[in-house]
Design a protein around this nucleic acid. Sequence first.
DNA 1: AAACAGTGCAACCGCTCTGAC
DNA 2: TGTCAGAGCGGTTGCACTGTT
Length: 326
Amino acid sequence: MGRSPCCDKSTGLKKGPWTPEEDMKLTQYIQMHGPGNWRTLPKNAGLERCGKSCRLRWTNYLRPDIKRGRFSFEEEETIIQLHSVLGNKWSAIAARLPGRTDNEIKNFWNTHIRKRLLRMGIDPVTHAPRLDLLDLSSLLSSPQLNLSSLLRLQTLVNPDALRLAMNLLSSQNDQNQLFNSDQLQNHQAPVIQPIHFDNIINQQIPSNDLTTSSFPNQSQSMQGNMGHFPVGSTNSTGQIFQNNLKPTTSDQSLPTDIPSFCYQMKSDSLSDNSSFDQSLNYSSSTTNTNLSFDNSVLSTPLSSSPPLNSASGFINGSTEDERDSF
DNA sequence: AAACAGTGCAACCGCTCTGAC
DNA sequence: TGTCAGAGCGGTTGCACTGTT
């Protein structure tokens, strides 16, 4: 529209990394005059930078409320959740992450989360499971594959992908004891030996689990899987927990005190952007352990389905290495 | 120890959109 | 209605750091 460019390249304005002196000038000027009028700001502040560069430097780095350092896992969860709802609206996501900038979130997404989702077989754009992307061999051969990591996976993986993993994991039931109550009380699960790829191939998996086309309605899928699934429930994930976590009557070697999973959610609609408040109660039939998972965010509700619960209790208690492991 | 490749991140670029005037 | 400044976005670049060979 005939608009003059922000930065006139012919003027030889400085580019590249900011020096501490420049940062100080910009900070002092904004502290005195406040941000705004970026076009004239550099000249008034004695900076040989274009206004846009000053604005970006201020908003992305110098602003006093910027929180620097690594993203917490809660922040990662939040980003994934919000991205599933908002897409690449980084500023909207940043608005819900105090102290984080859109640029920082975008970079973090592209360099960390996106790669992780791809490794886990999740399409980072649609948040749908993509088994053609899933690196099953590395996932399942990991010596750290265990129940708790799968539960943690649940916070990031579309449950349908997780269901597949759980199906695969169930092939270990004949040889491995999943966990015992002591470990449960300590929120730790025993390490399950690596699954050989032969087992994966031989594992009976419903054919509709093998293609992304089996998830025509993601929100429906998520709702069905993540809402309530006590043992004996007819929903698919409930079946999985029943089939895989409860010992079968024919396998008496397995523990009988496997907890049932009872999820209760109190949630506000996602359309109300103010809150992802929800809680999850995890109850054990033998320990009556109740863990609260308030303020966790999870999964990919693309519709008006309620925000989904998370096993954040496990996540929060996990180590950095464990988090990186998936 | 040196060379190389991979990674993470700050910063930039070019463009569009929005709201004020 | 057109112009402009600011904001936002996707993509990219450059560089420092780290791991591998």
